[in-house]
Simulated scan of single mutants.
Amino acid sequence: MGRRDYEDDPNAPAANSLVPAASAVVVDSGGRVLLQRRRDNGMWALPGGAMHIGESLPDCAVRETREETGVDIEVVGIVGTYSNPGHVFAYDDGEVRQEFSICFLARPVAGQLTVSEESTDVGWFEPDEIDGLPMIAGVRRRVNDWRAGAMPATR
């Protein structure tokens, strides 16, 4: 399913759903950040997605990261909350989802990099490499918020 992101765009379609979601800035012991290239829009992104009934938001971040990248994580903090009503995701099936996401800080604990049906590539990137990658503004904001917090990923 294809997806198009609109942020503060007067031509964006009106939202018709609101779904809690989680993402994760996963930072390894060398300070590299885990990213995936999304299959639906071709952009680099943090792992994340919609919360399922019966799970917590941190559990959602752990599950989504494992599903999308093959990496198991431990949540160690919160990067921020993101709920801009002007940021919507329009899907091919007609759903237009308003942004509502918590971005967690996490560290890898196991697993191997693996692409999924949602990603075409996954990898670890130095923070300064991220600036040159194609990425939607909302994801870049999360990475920049993490950078501004300078919060370590390991205890």
Score class of each variant (00 low, 15 high):
Ser101Asn: 05
Glu74His: 08
Asp59Tyr: 00
Ala106Thr: 02
Val79Met: 02
Val19Ala: 10
Ala21Glu: 10
Glu67Lys: 09
Asp40Thr: 09
Pro20Leu: 11
Met51Tyr: 01
Glu64Leu: 13
Gly77Ala: 01
Met43Leu: 12
Val96Gln: 09
Val96Phe: 09
Val26Met: 04
Val88Trp: 09
Pro47Gly: 07
Gln98Cys: 07
Gly30Asn: 14
Phe89Asp: 03
Gln98Gly: 13
Thr69Pro: 04
Gln112Val: 15
Pro85Ser: 11
Gly30Thr: 14
Gln112Ser: 14
Leu34Thr: 04
Phe89Arg: 08
Val96Cys: 12
Val19Pro: 07
Ile53His: 10
Gly31Phe: 02
Gly86Tyr: 05
Ser29Glu: 12
Leu46Cys: 02
Gln112Ile: 15
His52Met: 12
Ala22Cys: 05
Asn41Ala: 03
Ser101Ala: 08
Ser83Lys: 08
Thr69Lys: 06
Ala106Glu: 04
Tyr82Glu: 04
Val76Tyr: 00
Ser29Met: 05
Val76Pro: 11
Val109Asn: 01
Gly48Arg: 01
Val25Met: 10
Leu113Pro: 08
Arg63Gly: 06
Met43Gln: 13
Ile102His: 08
Gln112Ala: 15
Arg37Glu: 10
Ala90Glu: 14
Gly54Ile: 01
Ala106Ser: 09
Cys60Thr: 15
Gln98Pro: 08
Ala24Phe: 00
Val62Lys: 05
Asp92Leu: 09
Pro58Lys: 08
Arg38Cys: 06
Asn41Tyr: 08
Met43Thr: 05
Gly80Arg: 03
Gln98Ser: 15
Gly48Glu: 05
Cys103Arg: 01
Val62Trp: 00
Gln112Lys: 15
Ser83Cys: 00
Met51Thr: 13
Arg66Pro: 02
Leu18Tyr: 10
Glu68Ser: 01
Arg63Asn: 00
Gly30Ala: 15
Ile73Phe: 01
Val75Asn: 00
Pro108Arg: 00
Ala24Arg: 06
Gly111Val: 12
Val109Trp: 02
Ala50Asn: 14
Leu105Gly: 09
Leu18Ala: 07
Val27Gln: 06
Arg32Leu: 08
Ala21His: 03
Leu57Val: 00
Pro58Cys: 03
Arg97Val: 15
Val88His: 07
